[in-house]
Nucleic acid binder design. Structure first.
Lengths: 211, 211
DNA sequence: CCAGCGATTGACTCGTCAGTCAATCACGTC
DNA sequence: GACGTGATTGACTGACGAGTCAATCGCTGG
């Protein structure tokens, strides 16, 4: 019987949601635990009833989101009817839509964990690398089928691809890129076009020199 | 007359160099000012004789290095005999060599400032954007001359290009990429090849559909 | 109506550091 | 060889914030 007004799960969620807003607004290191409690409208101590530490709150938020992303990547990879380029487009679209849908959460994931691998991400390097690995697999298959060039390693290609997306998100987070639905869609196209098509104008078939 | 053993400038340098090592090893937020003083072999208080705060030490390190980089980019751009691709290759080479030459310093610049734009970089967003702007100008000229495709904005192309380099540095910093001279040279090639040439195998001239 | 138990509260403890400052040192100068 | 100035020292202060805990609340089942 759901304990009256709010269940334990709901309360926990309420704290997590408040934490997202606070982390996004003030940054993880800068905010106090009391800020999160205030934002959630609960007492300071209650936070420690649901989480072992301030760190655990961030960990939870990150993993919740990141796991969804990794799973999405793997699902996309499984759709054998898609070309590598289409798979990359689907992933790009998903991540950018994630940002569009909940910018605060993505900001926390990117700024406080992914891009802060020193402090925090070190703990999550494995999770981060799993994502790279899955993307690399997609690219590897694309190379095997002849769709993609195999002059670079799939590993590096995956890093560059993900880097381009992260760079775009960072651009929005720090107001270096215009926001708005058109911008989101435009950038989706840019990411795939840049990574797959490259900057060079057409004529320039093979790498420099040769035997 | 150089005050005996060490001049003021030398002492200052000594502290900055120690700070680089400490920041690289422990991270800016995690280390104590006393760690820097110890590493430099000077008393705690002396640090405040040369710098107003712990932050100012990091600011100084970042700006010292970043300014050199921005200037390099502008110098490269001025060499009109180079193609856009060659300019991008020169910039890539310079940044990667900077890392090879002083990994600790580049680690601090990237991890503690550039990629931590929330905490710190916010102060330095202007400096960071200046670099993007200079790269964008190179790309813009390349587009104007017909060397590069102009289906994406120079601004976005610059972000992706710089993002690819940063991603590579991050890969080395967190041991996701093998170190060693060959790796450095190989990645230089990868960056330019990926960004300019794209992942697609040749035949695929124009964007999808069309009028 | 009461006992029991998890949820909830927030004042308090306890460490940790950034930054200060008065004292001391080591030159160069006259 | 005394004086003054800037370099150097490190003990100390003050603020701050994570995590604790004993007390209270409000169900629920008997």
């Amino acid at each position: 019987m759901a304990t009256a007004r709010t269940t334990a799960a709901e309360r926990r969620r309420q704290i997590l949601d408040a934490a997202v807003r606070v982390f996004a607004r003030q940054g993880f290191h800068t905010c106090r635990v009391s800020d999160i409690a205030d934002e959630a409208g609960v007492a300071y101590g209650l936070l420690y009833h649901y989480f072992r530490s301030k760190d655990e709150v961030l960990d939870t938020l990150f993993l919740e989101r990141w796991d969804v992303m990794v799973e999405l990547i793997e699902q996309v990879d499984a759709r054998t009817e898609l070309t590598a380029r289409e798979k990359l487009a689907a992933i790009t679209s998903f991540i950018i839509d994630s940002y569009r849908h909940d910018p605060d959460l993505m900001k926390v994931v990117i700024v406080e964990v992914t891009r802060a691998a020193n402090t925090f991400g070190r703990t999550h390097l494995d999770a981060i690398n799993r994502a790279y690995g899955s993307i690399a697999k997609i690219i590897e298959k694309g190379m095997a089928s002849g769709e993609l060039r195999d002059t670079i390693t799939p590993q590096f290609a995956a890093m560059t691809f993900y880097g381009a997306i992260e760079q775009a998100l960072t651009g929005w987070i720090f107001d270096m890129l215009p926001t708005g639905d058109e911008s989101f869609e435009q950038i989706k196209g840019f990411v795939v076009d840049t990574i797959c098509g490259g900057l060079d104008a057409r004529p320039a078939p093979d790498p420099p020199a040769g035997v």
